[in-house]
Amino acid sequence: MAFSNITIAGAGVLGSQIAYQTALSGFKVTIYDHNIESVKERLTALEPSYKHDLKLSDKELQAGMDNIVNVTTDLNDAVKDADYVIEALPESLAIKEEFYKELSAAAPKKTVFASNSSTFVPSQLVDYVDRPAKYLHMHFANMIWRHNVAEIMGTVQTDPTVYQEVVDFAKAIKMVPIELHKEQHGYVLNALLVPLLSSALQLWVKNVADPQTIDKDWMISTESPLGPFMILDQVGVRTSLQMVENFYAMTHNEVYKEIDAKLKEMAAAGHFGQESGQGFYHYPHPEFADPNFLEA
């Protein structure tokens, strides 16, 4: 394995999962984030799900935590020994540009860079790095210990050897590597999923139907275990806002401004989704957990 020391930049909902999954798989992990306390809270909150879903012992869980060797707000400290950096920062070109320019100056020449960006393709960010041959994207689905795919997408400049090293790393952290042959906005997963979520949000803001009714229709009609608003609660309002704002920037469709305003109302009330205890549903006992949820 070409990589030993892994740095995760940004430990939000997904970044914290990537960090813990990597550490649990035996790699030494450093986390770079501006809020150390929130990182520790998110990591601790993952343990019950890992224990329940993967039937892990307390000893195995602790071994994973022990492999997170550093949580720091200092980028130079975070990447000084890094073989591989996975960036999971907010979906903002300005934020990513600033980060990659700082990362390029701080990281050793050996270090491979990857973005977990769900919105941008590698060619939109590659000009921000000093090593285009060692840059690509590695995109994870939420709840990665269960939805264990890693979508891997390079640019025409990505070294094939580096690409293969990332494929091997994905397997080493128990992901199924999904190798993309060319750039595609949304990869495979979001190219299919995001139009669904966008359509559901539009139905909501246009008052066609409420979120629970939309979810019921989708679940009954397709036999899907989750409705779009259940998925949105997992993704979280912060990520949904970024997605909607990017859509508006690309299309200038006024409906996205309406969705943006409604989501900001939820955020202002502290209703960020499953992580905060309320989004479109109330947790830990959401309405869809009622055995009669799909009944008339």
Rank of each mutant, 00 (worst) to 15 (best):
Y32W: 12
V85G: 11
V69D: 03
T119Y: 11
L103I: 07
G10N: 13
L89Y: 09
L61N: 03
T73N: 06
S104P: 08
G26P: 02
E60K: 14
A63W: 00
D77Y: 07
D66N: 15
K55D: 13
T44F: 10
D127W: 01
L125F: 03
A107E: 06
A82C: 08
A88H: 11
D53L: 04
K80Y: 04
A106G: 02
D66S: 15
I68Q: 00
D83I: 05
D53A: 10
S57F: 04
L75V: 00
G12T: 07
A107C: 02
V79T: 09
I86K: 04
I95H: 01
L103T: 09
I18M: 05
Y128P: 13
A9F: 07
P122K: 12
L61D: 04
A63H: 09
T111H: 06
L93C: 00
A19E: 13
E102Q: 14
G15L: 05
L103M: 07
P90G: 09
V39G: 10
H34Y: 11
S25G: 03
F99I: 05
E98Y: 07
P122M: 05
E41F: 13
A23C: 02
F27R: 07
V112W: 08
Y20Q: 07
S49E: 11
K101F: 09
A63N: 14
S123I: 04
A9M: 02
V126K: 06
A63F: 01
L61S: 01
S38M: 14
D58M: 06
D58N: 08
E41Q: 15
N116H: 09
V69K: 14
I36W: 07
H34F: 12
L43A: 14
N76F: 04
Y20L: 14
S92I: 00
I31P: 14
E102I: 08
A105Y: 04
A94S: 12
D77W: 02
I36R: 12
T44Q: 12
G64H: 05
D81I: 05
G12S: 02
D130S: 14
E87R: 10
D33I: 10
R42V: 12
I86S: 09
K28F: 06
Y20P: 11
L61K: 10
H34K: 14
S49N: 10
D74P: 00
N67H: 15
